[in-house]
Design a protein around this nucleic acid. Sequence first.
RNA 1: GCGAGCGUAACUCAGUUGGUAGAGUGUCAGCUUCCCAAGCUGAAAGUCGCGGGUUCGAAUCCCGUCGCUCGCUCCA
Length: 501
Amino acid sequence: MRCNIARKNEQNSVIEKIVSLSKRRGFVFQSSEIYGGLNGCWDYGPLGVELLNNIKSEWWKAMTYRDDVEGLDAAILMHPKVWEASGHVENFTDPMIDCKQCKARFRLDTLAEFLSGKRKEKAIKQLVQNLEEINSDLLPELKEIVSADLELNDKFTSILEKDKLSEALLSLVSCPQCGTKNSFTKPRSFNLMFKTFLGPVEKEGNAIYLRPETAQGIFVNFLNVQNASRQKLPFGIAQIGKAFRNEINTKNFLFRTREFEQMEMQYFVKPSDDKKYYDQWKEIRMNWYKSLGMTPEKLRYHDHPEDKLAHYAKEATDIEYQFPFGWGEIEGIHNRTDFDLRRHEEFSGKSQKYYDEELKEKYIPYIIETSAGASRAFMAFLVDAYHEEEVKGEKRVVLKFHPKLAPIKAAILPLVNKDGMPEIAKKIETELRPHLKVFYDDKGAIGRRYRRQDEAGTPFCITVDSQTLDDNTVTVRERDSMQQVRIKIPEILDYLIVKLK
RNA sequence: GCGAGCGUAACUCAGUUGGUAGAGUGUCAGCUUCCCAAGCUGAAAGUCGCGGGUUCGAAUCCCGUCGCUCGCUCCA
């Protein structure tokens, strides 16, 4: 037990170190910090936005620089019906009650299952009696439910669905966990979608939502993209964009936030091909993380058991990364079947069928989804890159990013600030800058400048020294090995471009 | 949403029984420095998370609030 606590502290301290490094070096800041911060929102600083952009750009290249995937960027605001069709209005809302005494929480729609039949019957009977005594105008509504041909559980739940009756009934029921009577809070609704209003008038009919996932923007454009691009099944549509969820609890730095970015691809296939492409994309996506240097031992699949599947999914797996706080999902691969397109066909009245020339038949395609969190991938790459080493008795903190992801590709440093070295270094900087994100630094001792770049994850440091003045060569220091090679100044760019691949 | 802990400079933290703030690191300027956080001199930087209250006086005590961490709950 003590061992667990010690390990837990150690794990947390890694996250703490990364959070403070992130702030100090300009990867991530807390949103609205000077006003005390905003829960679950984070800002990306100068280095952070480079890293994030590099991750997104690598994903975009991997996913759309292929002949069977098209790109898309749909609006964050969508027609409210989209979220009815998608099931979010229904499934994202859970009225909950808490017991004030023992703090147990129950979903209003499943409370009936926790109570014995006797207690439910007694409570309902009591409720009828109470309302009769005061001759309440709620009585007809209640009697209608009571006399209906329903199971006891359904009757009970139906009463709970009526606001006023629900309150009265709850006051007669004791908590299933601790048995305290009349201890429930009022039901509170936890809809995870952010609501706002379209147009200047804040009335309910104008309510729309910030999208809780980017996928729906792809589904509703399925036929637009298919027609415009003349793609045939199987083909995919890829999109990177922000999504919003009003999470009850945010957690673990960037892991659970209220505003986050998704990198999603929906692959449309013939229904009988679903398994084949599901397996294929599972593998492709796992390999993507490995190809960008993520530690393979810290990656795994987590298949969802059948009874835990989302309402739309036939098969689902997560790609998980082993964070210091435990395994966490960084991408989901789902077989969404024809659920989404069928629902949109139903709700919009517009056919979503694809005409298959070969089979000479129309059908709604199945969808294999790869849904990655850009913010979570960012955090995983950051955590994975973080290393502490001992060099000559001193601690060295180095972010070992894959060169493709590194925010700064090379730093140009004059060894000392004299003998014309700064001028030569400046000239090298000017030549490299149009091609690469580079950084010039002449402040402080050379060792300090190297360590600063290590902490930013810069893979190469180009140093101008006295030999440069003689033979026009510079040293190029590699971040991880700290080894240096001499390169002629005109060859630096080609050298770096090869190394950065 | 509940419970516990925490919130002091950019970062990590001291700050005694209440008397209006310090260190290390970092940053900046200068000197020095031919290769891995070296040295010297100097400087900037904090409404002590925010708002109330108690007090002659609050970083310190009390209340509220916001934020962070952990646990519970939640995460279609």
